[in-house]
């Protein structure tokens, strides 16, 4: 996750608090999604960015995960998400990201 965006997320959490805030991501693969989740829950794994050693504890979901999908209307799902759900396996995303949410 780019360092400029790490700084932005950090600022947003400081401003709004982590209690009623979550991050919803749209990464094109599971590995990329995991990296973002790791960065904003446990801190920057490369120890280089503003989130190095900072544990924001922000819950992270991928927009294709079943829990989020359940809240999105059929029309919007078809228009925005359906095709990418064939490219990235929503179940795999859930398995990968739920690990980090348990820690958040």
């Amino acid at each position: 996750m780019d360092q400029e965006y790490q700084a932005t997320v950090k600022k947003l959490v400081e401003e709004h608090g982590a209690d009623n805030l979550m991050m919803i991501i749209g990464a094109p693969d599971v590995e990329g999604a995991e990296l973002v989740a790791e960065t904003v829950t446990e801190g920057d794994p490369s120890y280089a960015g503003p989130l190095a050693g900072v544990s924001l504890g922000l819950p992270v979901y991928h927009v294709l995960e079943p829990a989020i999908r359940a809240e999105i209307s059929e029309d919007l799902y078809k228009e925005h998400l359906e095709m990418m759900a064939m490219v990235i396996d929503p179940q795999e995303l859930e398995t990968a990201l739920s690990k980090y949410r348990k820690k958040s």
């Binding site: 965006y5 997320v9 947003l12 805030l21 979550m22 991050m23 919803i24 991501i25 749209g26 990464a27 094109p28 693969d29 990329g32 973002v36 922000l58 927009v63 294709l64 925005h80 998400l81 990418m84 990235i88």
Partner: peptide
């Protein structure tokens, strides 16, 4: 926070 990616969503 909506964090999209060009080749994903």
């Amino acid at each position: 926070i909506a964090y999209g990616e060009r080749d994903g969503i």
